[in-house]
Design a protein around this nucleic acid. Structure first.
Lengths: 198, 198, 198, 198
DNA sequence: GATGAATGAGTTTTCATTCAT
DNA sequence: GATGAATGAAAACTCATTCAT
């Protein structure tokens, strides 16, 4: 019988449901406001149930961060699907990243903080790797073959992420940065980056 | 008589002592671990005493952030004292900023978060303004006069801060970023930035 | 299975137990001395437990006031059960009220204060309404039909409550008011009140 | 030299100043909000200074209650100055009392509470006695001589105070009691009281 | 598998009071 | 005579977690 599988499926669904409930709280009220009590109120299960699916709150937060990167990766997939020209593609990716950080402020902050905490002990989690790799790949393609020195590429990759991340952070602090300015700054920055690839 | 002055000095010293005790906790255990109880244990005073020198915890944190910017400004002053060439100067400033963010990780995070929170209601506090202004000025000087369009400069200023901030963030997450790589990335980024100034 | 019911019953019992523990503290030490810590010491549960049954201290106090009015209503029911003559009945009711206020001094004060606080925002709670209505009804019956003007009755109702309340208050301040005097004063007052109904 | 006297005068003035500062806080924010810190902020002296003029907070509150009765007595003096007819005079006195309780709600509550607390140990303070006596006297005069039985009068006195006090209390709880209704109820009540004097 | 009940440790804050100067 | 500094005790409340059922 498929009873085992059904159970497994149920388990997964429950895991997912809790995670998305938590996600909603984070999106709406910020990640500092996410308490297990609050979470239990939002889902139709008891606070204790969370411990059946997650080792503890920390584990839930990590999974939340991973979910965030999943969504980011999906957004990138969607927004860059048809774009073939490598440089346009890179541009679109980074813009998607910036949009994500800007619009999902609280989730983005969670992803950053969890990333920092985890970094001290563990390897990056796979969804984050996927993200980094896709940026990496885009950079590689945007360069001509002749430049494809590994260290070189890696640095370019970091720089591009840094720019986006920096812009996102600034946006949170300086209110005089309207969306258009930011967009043009991103364009500008990516342009010089791409120019520097040659 | 100097009695009044002595008292005022004592008061200031106490304020400073508490602030630095808090700073130590932040530096050693991260800013989330800073509680008034912990703080009271570290100084040789009661928990209540803190309220004689700070209105509440929030006020303490703000002062902590300001102290952080003070230290950052001082570092910049020291490191860039003798440098006259505008571009070298800009470079040195940004490098100092990056070093600060890298070495004073927890303080830096505190500064960021407080900056974000305050931003929603209040104007930036003066120490932060000083920092932003000094970067601004450096950028302005690094450009030739013919380019000195205000919006243009402001954007360049933001971009340069963004790069540094982004690099700092990345550094907190990706451990494979050694100091040298980072340094070169900064060089690289600043170089393209400066080239783009022309 | 009755498991659910049992739990519900337990829950109710706990609610009631806490409430009565709080009531005891109020009765013995006055309502200003009722703190959650103290309460937790008196019941054999942790301070936190209270929050499982009451939203916060305010909610506990409100429930306490309601309990007070319940007890008052019950006393009135018991003491006036067999009395048919409307005026005797009214007299008995008011006397019961006065006795209650006199003997349950601290609870009575709590009921007054909570009543005042709540009044500013909410409607009166049902137990209080029951009380007011029963007085109202008694007054109405004590009057002949020909006088049954609404405003008129309402005022008489207020006056009768005012007399009782006033006597109760006086009693708390002036110790030379022995029970007998007070009783006769109430008689006196009610008599004039009833005379004035004609 | 009058130095001693001057000092005594200063002392008295200081006592009075503190008291009136406290009074203002009570009037504006309610007596529960009166803390020594708050008080120290309002006067131009330190919190410690209060202890030079009052044994402790309790003593301050008692003096505050006495001050309240002083003001009440003064109001009565003013409002009833010219009124000779004994019954009109009594009426005017009680109305003044009701007005006071209504308009100086917080001070009135303080006076009540302190009165209750003190009652348990000490004799009434003189200002309160003055008040009670003046009511007493008015009642006595309102009666014809033939009725001047002591106990009888005392009771009438209490009853009249009870009515006023009760009306004042009701007013705090029942918001549907507008000023006019209340005024008429007082008239009504006093009228039956006076009728009953015969 | 699921949960309601319970808790210990922790949080920030306020207050009346004391004491050395 | 006056005060700034300091404090102990207490307040209400929140949270992540455990455990018996």
């Amino acid at each position: 019988m498929g009873s085992k599988e059904r159970k497994a499926r149920n388990r997964l669904k429950m895991h997912k449901d809790i995670l998305h409930a938590a996600l909603n709280i984070v999106k709406e009220e910020g990640y500092r406001s996410l308490s297990l009590r609050r979470l239990a109120n939002n889902i139709e299960f008891s606070a204790t149930a969370v411990y059946l699916y997650f080792k503890n709150k920390e584990a839930l937060l990590v999974d939340l961060a991973r979910l965030g990167y999943q969504q980011l990766n999906i957004s990138i997939d969607i927004n860059c699907k048809g774009i073939i020209d490598p440089r346009s593609r890179l541009k679109a990716m980074l813009r998607t990243y910036l949009d994500f950080a800007t619009h999902e402020k609280d989730l983005y902050l969670l992803m950053q903080e969890i990333g920092i905490e985890l970094n001290e002990l563990n390897p990056l989690f796979p969804e984050m790797l996927t993200f980094v790799n896709s940026i990496n790949q885009a950079i590689t393609k945007a360069c001509g073959k002749e430049n494809s020195n590994d260290t070189y590429l890696k640095r370019k990759c970091y720089i591009s992420m840094a720019i986006v991340q920096g812009l996102a952070s600034l946006n949170l602090i300086h209110k005089d940065l309207d969306a258009r300015s930011q967009s043009q700054m991103l364009d500008d920055a990516i342009d010089s980056l791409i120019v520097s690839l040659d």
